[in-house]
Design a protein around this nucleic acid. Structure first.
Lengths: 98, 98
DNA sequence: CTTTCATATGTTTGTCTGTTCATATGTTCA
DNA sequence: TGAACATATGAACAGACAAACATATGAAAG
């Protein structure tokens, strides 16, 4: 599947899956599957305080899973690429199976 | 993609991805992609002690990502289904991209 | 320029989790 | 049955991490 001798890939992979391994981040990512949202919208949407959301967004951004765009005073976040949705989707397929 | 009102799915999803979010578990799963192995083989293969491997195998088994079979004194572990490999694969694709 | 709104950042706290060590369980074979 | 081997389990410790609170940064409008 890939060169297992390159142990770095394993750590990168683990770091990638870590991003999806938390329900708050997962809910953020899912919320962004139907288009960009700003921090306030996400906070309200998930019933969490602004700080928690902002922290997670910065984590997700560092992992290059979301990207940010400023419009006036707001920062709009959106999914960085199609992989994000694909990964969630394949996870869902597994979870939903008998 | 799925019914977001069903919050349980989010938690199940997070739990699933948690399994892939640790390098030891990932290395175990990867090692099993080319066939079943017993605990001793895995421990030697990953240069880790038997107890650590056994603990992680029991975690993976509880998550139904691996299954176990006894042969004589040894327990042979293998991937539970095709999803496991698919999930790793799609993660690798993301990691390997520019 | 100052107030207000939106977001980011620093710090602390409580919880979770991976590893190790020690020991128990269970299987085989003499 | 008992010794030897393979794996599992329990407890303890250390490191990681998400959430909350307080505060700082930055943009816009008057």
């Amino acid at each position: 599947m890939f060169d297992a001798n390159n142990e770095d890939i394993i750590y990168d992979l683990a770091d990638l899956f870590k991003m999806f391994a938390d329900s708050t981040r997962l809910r953020i990512l899912y919320a962004l599957t139907d288009g960009e949202k700003n921090v306030g919208e996400l906070a309200e949407n998930l019933s969490m305080n602004q700080s928690a959301i902002s922290h997670q967004l910065s984590t997700l951004k560092a992992a290059k899973l979301v990207k940010a765009r400023r419009d006036k005073k707001s920062m709009y976040y959106s999914l960085a690429d199609d992989h994000v949705e694909s990964i969630i989707k394949i996870g869902v397929e597994h979870v939903l199976e008998p």
